[in-house]
């Protein structure tokens, strides 16, 4: 099976630079049928950001907003067609760290969630499965979510974006492994964007997972932090598992505790981090690997069973 974008199947080449973890819109109100209308101004902001990305070589963006959190597939399709940037939408759901899950997710058993995810992947225009865990714990509902994602992955081969909140990536990988998921299909998201030591990233990569260094640009860590981490990963020979992204969002409506940490510029990897990595001694091929080849391999499941 192929990976879908919101406008159709992704081609096997010509994806350009891939940003594997971004958001255009997040709106927690959607799960209570109280979504804030998307104004022309917001739409224009999304459009201009995508055009800017296209102009600097980004051809594909994975929008990691799951249903209930403001995902709007028709709007994503409209924006993709208007700008020429391929947008890959997410099925799945989110963690309970800051807000309860949507009412149709938390009580649902794993197999029901899996069926829902499969349906969205096969007929709903989604390309990846987004799941998440809280800090220092995988709650019972989150475990169901991960089990559902594993089952949906087994059925469709779709890649998984697995959000972490300051750690728990290793525990997630254990669960995926026990469910028969090939770890190169799992992008562990937000690696070392909190208090995790660099060794944590090395350990995740050594187990075969794809690393999402995907909070680039956020104020919590400067560019030097990401450069130092990538240099460590290069030293360990693990660059083939590194992807770079921002976790940006153009409009956030949701819990204040998250709103305070949002970030809206998805160009930093291309315009600032890559040059900084080059100054730190990485070659153009190595940065290309992280910005183009690695996320493409994960997204298209090249080399993996589908």
């Amino acid at each position: 099976m192929f990976t879908r974008s919101v406008t159709g199947p992704l081609p096997t080449d010509g994806l350009g630079q891939v940003l594997p973890h971004e958001h255009l819109l997040i709106d927690y109100g959607q799960m209570g049928d109280a979504a804030t209308p998307v104004t022309a101004e917001v739409l224009e902001r999304c459009r201009s950001v995508l055009i800017r990305l296209r102009d600097i070589g980004v051809g594909t963006v994975v929008d990691c907003t799951p249903p209930g959190y403001g995902r709007d597939l028709s709007l994503l399709g409209e924006l993709s067609r208007a700008t020429g940037v391929r947008l890959v939408a997410s099925t799945g759901s989110f963690c309970e760290q800051w807000h309860p899950q949507p009412a149709d997710v938390s009580p649902a058993p794993a197999d029901v969630l899996a069926q829902r995810f499969v349906q969205e992947l096969e007929d709903g225009g989604c390309g990846v499965i987004k799941v998440a865990t809280s800090h220092d714990a995988i709650t019972a509902n989150e475990e169901k979510l991960l089990l559902g994602a594993a089952a949906a992955h087994r059925a469709t081969g779709a890649p998984i974006v697995s959000h972490t909140t300051d750690g728990m990536g290793l525990e997630q990988l254990e669960l995926y492994l026990s469910e028969g998921v090939a770890l190169d299909a799992v992008l562990v998201s937000h690696v070392c964007s909190g208090s995790e030591p660099f060794d944590y990233a090395l350990e995740l990569a050594a187990k075969g997972a794809v690393l999402g260094l995907d909070r680039v640009g956020h104020t919590s860590h400067g560019l030097d932090h990401w450069v130092a981490l990538v240099v460590e990963l290069k030293r360990a020979g693990l660059l083939r598992q590194v992807t770079l992204s921002h976790d940006s969002v153009q409009r956030f409506v949701g819990p204040a505790q998250i709103a305070g940490h949002t970030f809206s510029d998805p160009t930093v990897v291309t315009t600032q981090l890559v040059p900084a990595l080059r100054r730190a001694g990485l070659t153009a091929e190595e940065t290309h690997l992280m910005t183009h080849d690695n996320p493409r391999r994960w997204l298209l499941r090249e080399g993996g069973a589908r």
Binding site: Q97, H135, D136, P197, D199, H225, A228, L229
Partner: peptide, 24 residues
């Protein structure tokens, strides 16, 4: 540093802050 890289410069006030206002 926000206590980083990792927890290499995490002092007690930063530790407290993270548990109070990041992990709630």
């Amino acid at each position: 540093t926000n206590g980083g890289p990792g927890t290499s410069s995490e002092t007690l006030p930063i530790y407290l802050y993270k548990f109070a206002f990041q992990y709630y």
